[in-house]
Nucleic acid binder design. Structure first.
Lengths: 354, 354
DNA sequence: CTGTTAGCGCTTTCAC
DNA sequence: GTGAAAGCGCTAACAG
């Protein structure tokens, strides 16, 4: 009875194994893999047989170390993967970087600044070629050229503060102003704003757009109609419920993002004074709710693509100084209403009915 | 993986630089980083000053090579990141692997088998510690122990075919059977099935659950009510529209996934014979549509967690043979209806119950 | 045409 | 307590 060695931790074959089997040196194997024209076809053939015999897979970790590259990956730091914005972003980035033989290392900061700092350091020690980040907060020192040792960083959705870097932003201001203007055009004057924390850039910009539309129409902002909070469906629902129970409730509101809009929808679906809704971020089935709705959309996948392109330009620039660039992704506004077109009748009763 | 050469020769300091600055050897730097007790506190202090002076970041690529580890990452191969199932999966996996100091390398196969084969080979050459995959098709040879050289693989949502591997599945059969049973309990006998291609496992299982519920109720399957197609909203919409225009249209249908359900909703919202809807996969706002709806849900984040746990056990088992395991994630059924409870009156007029 | 040498940045081993 | 040497798997540079 022969003691068949338990194949414990069968090591992945290296170039040495292939070379030994083919009776050549490792360099010949390496050159065969790169299809170096100087190697004889017969030799190549022998090597290829050994390669497939052993099912050789090149160790890119070792290769990258030798050729002075990093991990051959770009880091993507997102806040909340459950938000479709981030999955679309990842999609767009992956699409572009893949064409350069790079992959995406995805990490999830969960909205925690300290965690983000740790994760960025971690990506750095893994020697990613660059980082795309939607940063938390407005302390971006850990993303500066010093700590990053020149590893390129592209900001998405928020501009860098205190440091200089490329960024790709959404046209938060214009989108919000446009949508708010449409509420006003429908005759609303008492419009609430269910906002994000004003410390986050998009929150501030969207509020600015809201305020600009109001000012253009010579409407004054009612402070009791302006609320801020973390992006959270339940919190938004409570906020909107409290708005609706005011002595003089607003007749319309602008929800500063997807999550707030969903919360507003839930609150508005309860019995209560009717309210017209507008908000930032498209969401599936918006058109199927049978409710009058104004939605600001943008192409998050394209935002990812653009961010990846900026990043790769910088990676390839090889230390040459490019000026910091800022790309603004456009928004558009969609309006949905009930199928019968009984918009005002059904949902804006203050305008034509009651 | 051969692509455009990227050369980014950034001047990240190495241990040699730190050692030189501190006037010690690289070993002392290494030991200081690991807080080796044999190094004097004064020496450590000197090294630490140099470390922070240069903002040293360890090169984990080199470290992993030396200590015989891979990339310190797990590969995640998904079909369609735009599907929330995959983002939730990524979330659960990230949550677990991060506790072991690993990151997630995310790649996107876009439903293309050949692409998937390439991407898996690529992850392998990057020496990921393991792979979680929701594979396309039923040819899983590229994921067998031979090509993978023993790199652990965990299948999600579909079981391995032709090879043995761990997998985490959704209880497609039970969920579908339960939901279909509820349609039957409401008096429906003419029930359509808007299915996935029967070649995908979850498609087959969901159909099996549907058929089992019908058989239990001694109802016969009407072939004209059973349709299959790619998971695509517009295709599903067309399919359901054609079902509704049959001489004798079904009074209810089961949509085999999220995408098909959305398509069915769109078709059913047109003028046409009313139809009761049931389907697989939760979706946001299901409860807000004001439509009678039966939805099969499951916890995709937890599915990711479980997959990651199986994978890590195998990674840590270090070659010891574990038997292939199969975890089934449970489903539950939620029923939604219009707020007024006028369920049948509004949407199932053919029924006289209640 | 093919092989040898050296070294990417780190850590294991052994010497002092 | 600290350092020198060797090598993880690969490839650039130079031999032959």
């Amino acid at each position: 009875m022969t003691a068949t060695p338990l194949r414990a931790k069968r090591a992945v074959p290296t170039m040495r194994d292939v070379a030994a089997l083919a009776g050549v040196s490792t360099m010949t194997v390496s050159r065969t893999l790169h299809d170096d024209p100087r190697i004889t076809d017969e030799t190549k053939q022998r090597v290829r047989v050994a390669l497939s015999e052993l099912r050789y897979v090149r160790n890119d970790t070792a290769r990258n170390l030798r050729i002075g590259r990093g991990a051959g990956a770009v880091g993507l730091v997102v806040g909340n993967l459950a938000n479709p914005f981030y999955s679309q972003l990842a999609l767009g980035i992956g699409e572009v970087v893949e064409q350069y033989g790079l992959t995406v290392m995805l990490v999830h900061a969960s909205g925690d600044h300290n965690r983000e700092v740790r994760l960025v350091a971690d990506l750095l020690s893994r020697r990613v070629e660059g980082i795309v980040i939607a940063p938390e907060g407005d302390d971006h020192r850990h993303l500066g050229p010093g700590p990053m040792h020149g590893t390129p960083v592209v900001f998405v959705a928020r501009p860098p503060s205190g440091i200089s870097a490329d960024c790709v932003l959404v046209d938060d201001f214009a989108g919000t102003k446009d949508a708010t203007g449409r509420l006003i055009a429908r005759g609303h004057t008492n419009i609430a704003f269910v906002g994000l924390p004003p410390t986050v850039w998009s929150g501030a910009e969207r509020f600015r757009g809201f305020a600009a539309a109001m000012a253009d129409a010579q409407l004054r902002l009612n402070k009791r109609y302006v609320r801020y909070q973390q992006s959270d469906v339940m919190a938004a629902e409570r906020t909107v419920r409290s708005l609706l129970s005011l002595a003089k409730p607003p007749t319309a509101l602008f929800a500063a993002n997807n999550r707030n809009m969903i919360g507003a929808l839930r609150a508005a679906s309860d019995a209560g004074p009717p309210i017209a809704l507008a908000g930032f971020d498209a969401f599936e089935l918006a058109d199927m709710l049978g409710l009058p709705l104004i939605v600001v959309s943008y192409d998050a996948v394209d935002l990812g693509r653009q961010a990846a392109r900026l990043l790769l330009e910088r990676v390839n620039a090889d230390g040459a100084k490019l000026p910091a660039r800022r790309v603004i992704v456009p928004t558009w506004v969609a309006e949905y209403g009930p199928p019968g077109g009984q918009y005002h009748l059904l949902h804006l009763p203050r305008l034509s009915r009651d």
